[in-house]
Amino acid sequence: MAKIFITLTGTKHYFGNDFLEKGMKIRLEKEPDNEYDKEAIKVTYEGLGKIGYVANSSYTVIGESMSAGRLYDKIGDMAYAKVVLVTPAGTICKICKKSLKSEQEETA
Results as ranks from 00 to 15, higher is better:
Leu100Glu: 15
Ser57Lys: 10
Tyr72Cys: 10
Lys3Val: 13
Phe15Cys: 06
Asn17Gln: 12
Asn56Leu: 04
Lys74Trp: 09
Ala2Met: 13
Ser65Ile: 05
Asn34Gly: 04
Phe19Leu: 07
Glu39Asn: 09
Lys82Pro: 12
Glu46Gly: 09
Gly23Thr: 01
Lys97Asp: 15
Val86Asp: 13
Arg70Ser: 12
Glu103Ala: 09
Gly69Phe: 09
Ser102Pro: 01
Ser102Leu: 11
Val43Gly: 02
Ile51Thr: 05
Tyr53Pro: 02
Val84Asn: 10
Pro32Lys: 00
Tyr59Arg: 11
Gly69Ser: 05
Phe19Glu: 05
Asn34Phe: 00
Ile62Gln: 11
Lys97Cys: 12
Val43Ala: 01
Gln104Pro: 00
Leu85His: 10
Ser58Ala: 12
Lys30Glu: 15
Thr91Met: 09
Glu103Phe: 05
Val43Ser: 02
Ile75Gln: 10
Lys30Trp: 14
Lys25Asp: 11
Thr87Asn: 03
Asp18Glu: 13
Glu21Thr: 11
Ile92Val: 12
Pro32Arg: 01
Thr87Met: 08
Ala79Thr: 12
Ser102Trp: 15
Glu64Ala: 10
Asn56Ala: 02
Glu29Met: 06
Gly52Arg: 01
Asp77Trp: 13
Leu85Asn: 05
Lys98Asn: 15
Glu103Arg: 01
Ala108Ile: 07
Glu103Leu: 00
Leu20Pro: 03
Ala89Pro: 04
Val54Asp: 06
Thr11Gly: 00
Glu29Lys: 04
Met78Glu: 15
Ser65Cys: 15
Cys93Gln: 09
Ala81Arg: 01
Leu71Tyr: 03
Asp18Trp: 07
Lys82Asp: 15
Lys30His: 08
Glu31Asp: 15
Asn17Arg: 13
Lys98Leu: 11
Leu20Cys: 03
Ala81Phe: 08
Gly23Asn: 11
Tyr59Lys: 14
Lys25Gln: 13
Ile26Ala: 06
Ser57Phe: 03
Lys50Asn: 13
Glu103Ser: 05
